[in-house]
Structures are given as structure tokens and as C-alpha cells.
Design a protein around this nucleic acid. Structure first.
Length: 433
RNA sequence: UCCCGAGUAGCUCAGGUGGUAGAGCAGGUGACUGUUAAUCACCGGGUCGGGGGUUCGAGUCCCUCCUCGGGAGCCA
């Protein structure tokens, strides 16, 4: 009778029993007649022990063929042992090989350069640290969906292929039958606004594309963004939603992903302080603060990365900067009735130097003002007719924001580059693997 | 596009003032009955990113091109 299969995470429940485990070898060690295999099955790490005269001759021969990342099946008795990582190990009786792994497997248990690792991303994903990041990203995405589901938001999937519409920055273009050029979406927001008039509270969540030649640790050409849009929310409501949302996400990761945060050696005290309310700094005040700190900004300038760092300095949670000058922001943002030089908007800056994770605004709901802004920006009015119609037929106060998933995950994980926050990152110079 | 930095063994890197290339890890062989990125001994491994120049002689100095990384701008 053959022993039942078990996943590594379930092994403690099978102490004293014979089981079979399938997975990949990460380390192989031998000291003569005692040998060790450290293996992985996706649920955990297991140390297995082979004693030469306690295994079959075939198993001992097979051990000699093992290399890093050989896929194998082992059978043996589960036992508690303080010397094993995790406190449990498998005393092997049988060992069979599914797939050999040639000796030139590129990723070794040692330091590698970032470029080399990205070239080998398909293997890099197998390392403990990358697995921890993947699980935290997964938890973050689930938290995002639960947050909105629990608050009666409807998920609306917006198109990825669009006609020219959205932000001003770089677009990826492709030919689209007889319709001319199609562009990969930079935002689902404008479609979200249409859906908000139908469903009240909606969000979209999907990949988004920016053809900017940005070479920084905060930029990808393809990244995931979640964009809620809420009918009858003003800019204040919008910021309240943002701080609740971000706090919820961080709380969920703290609650359910302690092991992964530990693997990443993340200082969790930095995350435990993430609770509403977040500090709010008016743009004009921000300029004054920056000037007092020696910055050269003057009123009307957009804030650079250095300025943002200065503003977040000393805060233990994300900081809102709100109501920027109109010229620094997108055409669809609503003019501030109390200061028409500015628009009702906010950026949310993450602590510890991670920068902007959210951009949000109340949308311009006045048809004529929106049309004037479209013309000022030299945008093709005909492409925006349907968007303008939303202001013509039952216009409504509404607000929303976009949260960058990889930036958020990168901040929560405490990693240096957001490339690690997505399985297969796309950057200016990287289209493969 | 601009400003820095880097390209030397499969990987990570070291190579004052110019004199025909080194280490660790990985790999191979052997030893070892409790290893934790095991340890020890021995062995194999290189068009020093490309091109040009100076020089008796260039990994090293000069010019140029390429590639990559970081930052700026832009943004999530």
C-alpha cells in the first residue's frame, strides 16, 4: 500500500505517519552516509533526511543524481526534530525523480545582480523572498476586492483598447482595423465615471500602460491600478475613502501575512501606525513648508520627487497633498470654487520615501468648464463627446482615485524597486521573459 | 532627452604609478552518519562589452560606439 500524498504545510498533522511529498529541491547536502534534501512544494519548505542503510539502493542512487531544482517525490515518515528548519522533517525511505535539472541552473543560493535576476525572472520567482512578495501582492489584491465588495461597490471592467483618451503622457499605439489607431489604456477612470452614473459606487481594477521612458525604481510601463469612482462624493469624501482603503489593505497584510513580512525582514512597526486620519497638507501650505526647508519651489510649480520626500519627512503615515494648481493637473479635475487657480484633487504620498501611491480628484461636472479645459489642452473634442455627455444628461458631483498596486505592494514589502512587486515586470528595456 | 555609475570565469567581484589575469561561490573527483548558503583536499574554467589610438608593451591611459543600472522629468 502506498502512502498518501501530503503538502508540506500539512505535515505536522501527519507526525509519525508515512507520506509522500512532491516538489523541487532547493539545497542538497551530503556528509557521507547521511544526506539532506531541502525541498519546496509551494506550501512550505521541508528538510528531508536520507540515511544510506535506511533507504532503498535506488533511493540512494537517485540522491546522487540530484541537483538544485530537480523535481522529485519522496516517501517517508514525518517526525518532529528540533534540528530541522520549521521543527519537522521527513525520514526518507524512497526517492524518485520526475525531472532532472542540469547543473547550469542559473540562480544559486548567493547574491546576484538585479539585471541577471530579471533575465532569469522565471526562475527568480522560486526563491523565498520572491514567493513572499507574490503572496503579499495576492493578499493586497484580495483586500482591495473585499474592501469594495463589503461597501457595495460594483466592479466594472473597463476597456484596455481605447481611442485617444485619458492622460497626456506616453501612449502605446497599435493599428485597429479600419478605426485608425488604438491605444492601450492609461486609466479606466473616464469609463468609471460613466459607470458611476449607472451604479453609484464602482471600481475598476486592471493593467494600465504608460509608454514613458521612465527609468526609476517607481516606474513600470505596465502596472496594475485600482480606480474607484463614487457618485455624490466630493473631494473630502474622496480623501476619507482613500485613507480607510489604504489602512484596510495594510491591516489585512499585517493580519494574514506576518510570515511573509518576516521573510522580507520588514519593520512591521512602520506598518502598524498606518491608521486614519492621514495628515492633509494644502498645496499652498506645502509650498510654504518647502520654502522654509530651503526648497526653490514657487507657487504654481508641480512638486518634484525631492519636494515630496521633504513633505513626508517626519510623518509615520501617508500624507495627503491636496488642491494643486490647475496647470499642474489633468483637464478633468474640478475647479476649486474657493480658489479657481486650483483644482479639487489630492496625491497620497507613502512614508519611508515610497512616494505617490494615489492620485485622486473630484471631477469637473460643469459641461462648459470641462469643454473649455479640453480645448485649452488641445485635446480632440470629438473623442470626448460621450464624456461630455455625462455632464449634459444628469450631471452629478463625483470623485475617485487611482491606487498603483505595485507601488503599494513595494511599500508594504519594503522593497527597493517595484519591479519585484509584479511577476513579470515590463520596463523600457525589458519585454522578456 | 539630460546627469551620474558600471561592463573582467556560469554567478558575485578584486585587479596602486601600464609589464601576457585572481578570489569566493557554482561545476568535477575524493573524504566524512545531523547538515542548516555544511566542511576539507585536489582539478577544469577567460576574445577583460565592440572598434580605434598612444606605447616596445594596454584589463589599466585617450577617443568613440554599444549595452545595462541609478537618478531627473512625467506619473500610479
Amino acid at each position: 500500500m502506498t502512502a498518501p500524498y501530503s503538502r508540506i504545510s500539512e505535515l505536522p498533522r501527519h507526525t509519525g505517519e508515512n507520506v509522500r511529498v512532491r516538489g523541487w529541491t532547493s539545497h542538497v547536502r551530503s556528509s557521507g552516509k547521511v544526506a539532506f534534501i531541502v525541498m519546496r512544494d509551494g506550501t512550505g519548505i521541508l528538510q528531508t533526511v536520507l540515511v544510506k542503510n535506511a533507504v532503498s539502493p535506488e533511493a540512494w542512487t537517485n540522491f546522487g543524481r540530484l541537483t538544485q531544482e530537480t523535481s522529485i517525490e519522496v516517501e517517508g515518515e514525518v517526525r518532529a526534530d528540533a534540528r530541522a528548519p520549521g521543527g519537522f522533517e521527513l525520514a526518507v525511505k524512497e526517492l524518485s525523480i520526475y525531472g532532472e535539472s542540469p547543473i547550469d541552473y542559473p540562480i544559486q543560493p548567493k547574491e546576484h545582480g538585479i539585471d541577471f535576476l530579471l533575465d532569469n525572472r522565471h526562475f527568480w520567482l522560486r526563491t523565498p523572498r520572491q514567493r513572499a512578495i507574490a503572496r503579499i501582492r495576492h493578499e493586497t489584491e484580495q483586500a482591495i476586492r473585499d474592501f469594495f465588495y463589503d461597501r457595495d461597490f460594483t466592479l466594472v471592467d473597463t476597456p484596455i483598447l481605447t481611442a485617444a483618451i485619458g492622460e497626456r503622457s506616453g501612449l502605446f499605439a497599435t493599428e485597429y482595423f479600419d478605426e485608425g489607431t488604438a491605444y492601450l489604456a492609461q486609466t479606466g477612470q473616464l469609463y468609471g465615471e460613466a459607470a458611476a452614473a449607472a451604479l453609484g459606487k464602482i471600481y475598476c481594477f486592471g493593467p494600465t500602460f504608460r509608454a514613458e521612458k521612465s527609468k526609476t525604481r517607481r516606474h513600470l510601463t505596465e502596472f496594475w491600478m485600482v480606480e474607484p469612482e463614487v457618485a455624490f462624493n466630493d473631494s473630502d469624501d474622496n480623501m476619507r475613502l482613500q485613507e480607510e482603503f489604504v489602512s484596510y489593505i495594510v491591516g489585512r497584510v499585517l493580519e494574514r501575512r506576518q510570515a511573509e513580512l518576516k521573510e522580507l525582514e520588514r519593520d512591521v512597526s512602520k506598518l502598524e501606525s498606518i491608521k486614519p486620519p492621514f495628515p492633509r497638507i494644502n498645496y499652498s501650505d506645502a509650498v510654504r513648508i518647502l520654502q522654509s526647508k530651503g526648497s526653490a519651489v514657487t507657487w504654481g510649480d508641480d512638486l518634484g520627487a525631492e519636494d515630496e520626500a521633504l513633505l513626508v519627512e517626519g510623518h509615520d503615515r501617508p500624507v495627503f497633498i491636496y488642491n494643486y494648481p490647475k496647470e499642474a493637473k489633468a483637464f478633468y479635475m474640478k475647479e476649486n470654487p474657493e480658489d479657481p487657480r486650483t483644482v479639487l484633487c489630492d496625491d497620497l504620498l507613502a512614508p519611508e520615501g515610497y512616494g505617490e501611491i494615489i492620485g485622486g480628484s473630484q471631477r469637473e461636472d460643469n459641461h462648459d468648464k470641462l469643454l473649455a479645459r479640453i480645448k485649452e489642452e488641445n485635446l480632440p473634442v470629438e473623442a470626448y463627446n460621450w464624456y461630455l455627455d455625462l455632464r449634459k444628461y444628469g450631471t452629478f458631483v463625483h470623485s475617485g482615485f487611482g491606487l498603483g498596486l505595485e507601488r503599494t505592494v513595494g511599500w508594504i514589502c519594503g522593497i527597493h524597486h517595484i519591479r519585484e512587486a509584479i511577476a513579470f515586470p515590463r520596463t523600457m528595456n525589458r519585454l522578456r521573459p
